[in-house]
C-alpha cells in the first residue's frame, strides 16, 4: 500500500506508523471527567469503509497527518494535512 505523505510524497506503507482513529477529539488537558477519558481511550468505532485516521511518516519527515482510507479496500480517499 502506498501512503501519500503531504510533505515527502507517496511512499510505501512500511515507512509509516499508524496512529488510529482521527475523528475523536482528545479531551482538553486537565479534563478530570472519567467517562470522557474512558470513551476517548477505550471506545472507538471500527468502520468497514471510509475511515479518517492518523499516520506518522517515521522513516521520512516524522510528521503526523490525517488520511482518509477505505479500511475494506485500502483505497486512499484523501489526505494529508
Amino acid at each position: 500500500m502506498r501512503i501519500p505523505c503531504p510533505h515527502c510524497g507517496e511512499r510505501d506503507v512500511n515507512e509509516f506508523r499508524y496512529g488510529g482513529d482521527a475523528t475523536k477529539q482528545r479531551p482538553a488537558h486537565g479534563d478530570k471527567d472519567f467517562q470522557t477519558w474512558n470513551a476517548y481511550v477505550f471506545e472507538f468505532d471500527n468502520p468497514k469503509g471510509p475511515h479518517e485516521e492518523f499516520w506518522q511518516h517515521t522513516l521520512g519527515c516524522r510528521q503526523w497527518f490525517r488520511l482518509k482510507r477505505n479500511t475494506a479496500t485500502n483505497q486512499i480517499l484523501g489526505g494529508g494535512q
Binding site: R17, R26, Q56, T58, R62
Partner: peptide
C-alpha cells in the same frame, strides 16, 4: 513518536 503525536496533533 508519542511526544511528536502530542505536540503536532493535540497541543
Amino acid at each position: 513518536s508519542w511526544l511528536e503525536f502530542l505536540a503536532q496533533c493535540h497541543w
